[in-house]
Structures are given as C-alpha cells and as structure tokens.
Design a protein around this nucleic acid. Structure first.
Lengths: 254, 254
DNA sequence: CGACGATTTGACTCTTCTCAATAAATGTGG
DNA sequence: CCACATTTATTGAGAAGAGTCAAATCGTCG
C-alpha cells in the first residue's frame, strides 16, 4: 500500500493562509514582532473531535486553519447539519463578527491547529488598522463568493452533480491554493458529506460506487483518487458556458 | 378589490437601509454634505427589467436598494439561476469587492431606485475610513450569516419547507426591518421563486394551492396574504429550538 | 479475536420532475 | 376600452430520482 503518504498532515505555509495579508499588515516591516504576537496567537493545537467553538459563546476573534481540517455544524431546527468544512488556510468565524456571539459548533475532524486573530486588541494596530480592515473585507468578499457557489450547487437539483462538485472542490482546497490534488485523504465521514450536500448517506455511497465504475473517481474508505478530472467537471456541470446573447433588456448606464 | 394598496412602491427610509451606518459615517456631523455626496450617489432610478449590473464589467462600488426590488442571476453552467433577491435597504455587490469585476446579472423586478456607494473615492473619507470599513465589515458579516441560512434551507430536502421559509423570509424583508407584513405583493414570478429555491415551477405552484387549502397562505397572482404565521413557521421548520437561549441578539430572519 | 461504528447494498416508497394541456394574467395596437 | 397575442400560472398523469428501512460487509481499535 504505497498510499500511506496521503495520511501525513501538512502545515500550511503562511503565504498560503487567508490570514496572510492580515498578518503581513500587522507583522511585516515592524521593528519588533510583538505587535503581531499581540493580535495573532499562533498555531494552537486542536485535538481530533475537539470543539474549537460552541454556540452562544461571546465572539473573540476569527481563526485560520494551520493544519488539519474542521467542520461547522448548525443546530437550526431539530436536526444538526454540517454547513461547512474548513481546510488549510481557510478562515473560521467570519459570519459571527457582527452578532457578537459564535453561532455554530466548529469541530476538528482530525489532529489540527489554528491561528487565532483576536478582535479585542485590534486598536493596537494603530494606523495599520485601515489596511487590516481592507484585507479582512477582501477575505470576506472572497468567502461570500464561495458561499454563493455552494448555494448554486445546492440548487442544482441532482445529487450526482452535487457530489461531483464537492469532490472537485475538495481536491482543489485540500492543498491551499496549489494545483488540485488527484490523490488525497478525506478528513470527513460519508455522513458529513451527505449532511453537507443535503443528501442521504446511502445516496452518497451509491454515487461513489457509480463514480468508481465510470472511472471518474475512486474512494476506498477515506482515500480518494480522482481518475478523470474532465469527466468530474462535466458531471459537476462546471464546464464552459456557451456564448450568450444578452440583449433582451437595456443595461443601466453607470 | 381593496387589495390595491399592496401595489404602492414605498421608499425605504435611510435609517432602515443597510448603508445607513456607512452613510452616517460619511455624512453626519460633517460641516458640509459634500463629502457624502462624493461617495454616495443617491437614488438613481432603474426601470423595470433594466439591468443594474452585468457580468465581467469592472467593479465600481456597491449598491443599496432604495425602492423596488432586484434579482441576481448567475450564469454558471448552461442554465441561468436566480441566486438572490434584493429588497428595500439591502446591499448588492458585496461578493464582488475582491474580484474586481461584477459577476452576475442584477436586474430590476419592478420600477426601482438605488444608492451607489462608489469605491473609487473612498480615500476622501480620510480618518473616517476606519469607521466606514467597520460598518462594511458588519454588513458583510450579517450577510454571510443570511447566506448560510439560505444554504441550510436548501439542504433541508423537502420543497414544502423551502417555500414556506421563503414566504416567511419575504414577508419579513419586504418592509425593511419592520414587523412582518401579512399582506404584500410579490415582485417576482413563480419561475424566479422556483429557480431560487431549486425547484420546478410546477412544484411551487402546487405547493401554493396546497398552502391555500390548508389556510396557511394565499397567493392570487402576485398578491400574497399570510393567513397563519404560526403554521407557516412550523412548516418552514423555524420553530423554537429546544433548550437554547436566544435572547441576547435579535434572531436573524431568513 | 471481537465489538462497535462506518459504509455499502438491496427492496420499496414517496417526492419531485418532466411533459403536455389548459387557464389566467399581462401587454399591445387599433 | 376592447380584442388579440404573449407571457405566466395552474393542473394532471406518468417517470425518474432520492429517501427510508433493513441487512450485510468492511474497518478500526481495544
């Protein structure tokens, strides 16, 4: 089984972390590193299954995943649902900045670590606060776009498409901004995937065996291998759109 | 037909607009109003069917709906989908701040008007920029929460729940932060609703007649009347969750 | 090895979609 | 203001997709 190397847990480089721009503002070019240290607490370990956040606790700051992976669980209604996964370099807690409280459970799927960006001492950034905010706004905007795409995915009724798009997305996100991985280890259970995609576990399972038969992707347990990226994209409906004439209505002149 | 009054098109008060905090930072307490005028261009009319934004045009700023309503259409894959509606006081374009280009088509569903917050001249805000960005971050965070709730809605498989939650949401949003309206006029077609909820038009139509029979809500054409808010919430799965205190901050509506 | 949880598979049911036809609403020109 | 054309909405019937329940298999960890 030369598949073992999928198991190693890489740490994300700071330059591939979504906090990078933010940390750079706080840290780079400063005479002492102490400013950065006051605002960002670095690389706190989180054990597998441990909860990083629980609902209704006061907002303290946002987090970036340094190693490992997390899932966010929403407790709306009677049943819990996985509403997000967080991979290397991604930010956690952006949606809670305004409300003053964390709203969901965030739990480590494996041995992980995070950097925390505390909001209490932001004023110490002084004149750099503007740049910091700018970076944050960029990150939030980026994330909103991503969330929109998830919504679009969930609206595209059929389950095949959802799962294909999910696999494609994970292959891309698993190593933080680099080329999509064709072979990787999934940190979450089938049930998490199903919950996230709004499907039944059995449906996910059946689709996976089907993908395997069609030589699109192969999952043995949590070891995943993408066999045919093109087909995967096609099934996911991520292909190039056809040229569209959009002349029906006048466009507001800005 | 004493239902006619549903047709009037109210303008949103500045204090109920999501730009309010932002405008206040720029405008209030300033000796001259000219600063605000340089950053926010106010109440531009947009005709019904006219497009406020089209994809791949350079980002200039964000918008707030002053009157009327809009829909955002995504062109991913082969079929277009409605991915958002924008009602009084709500912001448009937040997800495009980072990318530098608008990505979707935003179209007026009826005679509308918007305020535009241009990003080109933000530096003129000078020291107020920090407060401005703070406000923007708040607004974005709020919106992310809302989008997450939409996602949760879309994951909750059954169509009945989706439509009920949608109606509830519209009743709440239609008059910008005030009490939910029990009688209102829907600005969008059934097809838009279906697209937004990831359902077939026929399903929406069938559910609506069913809601009418169960005396939950009644839609004659675009005139809507909520007959039983409690039932609507129950069907939408929005009922009080067990054992959770949620009194600290207002519950975000869908 | 054995137990427990996770995953897969099968059989059946129910929901939602699709296609097709009709009905209602809206818009247009005379 | 009315008749007609066009879009939008509703309804019905049948098919496909996904869910549920139940059982079997696989994997992991003590």
């Amino acid at each position: 089984m030369a598949r073992r190397d999928c198991r190693r847990r890489p740490e994300v480089e700071c330059r591939d972390c979504e906090l990078f721009g933010i940390c750079r503002v706080a840290g780079l070019g400063s005479i002492d590193d102490s400013l950065l240290d006051e605002v960002v607490s670095r690389r706190c370990p989180v054990a597998k299954g441990e909860r990083l956040l629980i609902p209704d606790t006061p907002f303290r700051g946002i987090f970036a995943v340094k190693s490992g992976a997390f899932r966010t669980i929403s407790h709306i209604g009677q049943s819990d649902r996985v509403i997000n996964f967080h991979f290397l370099g991604e930010l956690i807690g952006l949606e809670t900045i305004e409300g003053g409280h964390y709203l969901h459970t965030v739990e480590a799927l494996e041995e992980s670590s995070v950097c925390e960006l505390g909001f209490a001492h932001l004023h110490r950034l002084g004149p750099r606060l503007v740049q910091f905010q700018e970076q944050l706004i960029q990150a939030m905007s980026r994330r909103m776009l991503h969330d929109q795409q998830i919504c679009t995915l969930l609206r595209a009724q059929n389950s095949e498409r959802r799962l294909a798009a999910f696999l494609y997305s994970v292959a891309n996100r698993l190593n933080a901004g680099r080329e999509p991985a064709s072979e990787f280890r999934l940190p979450m259970r089938r049930e998490d995937i199903a919950s996230y995609l709004g499907l039944a576990v059995e449906t996910v399972s059946r689709l996976l065996t089907q993908f395997s038969q069609r030589r699109i992707a192969e999952l043995r347990g949590r070891n995943a291998r993408i066999l045919d990226f093109d087909s995967l994209c096609t099934v996911a409906g991520l292909n190039l759109r056809v040229g569209r004439a959009e002349t029906e209505h006048p466009v507001k002149q800005l």
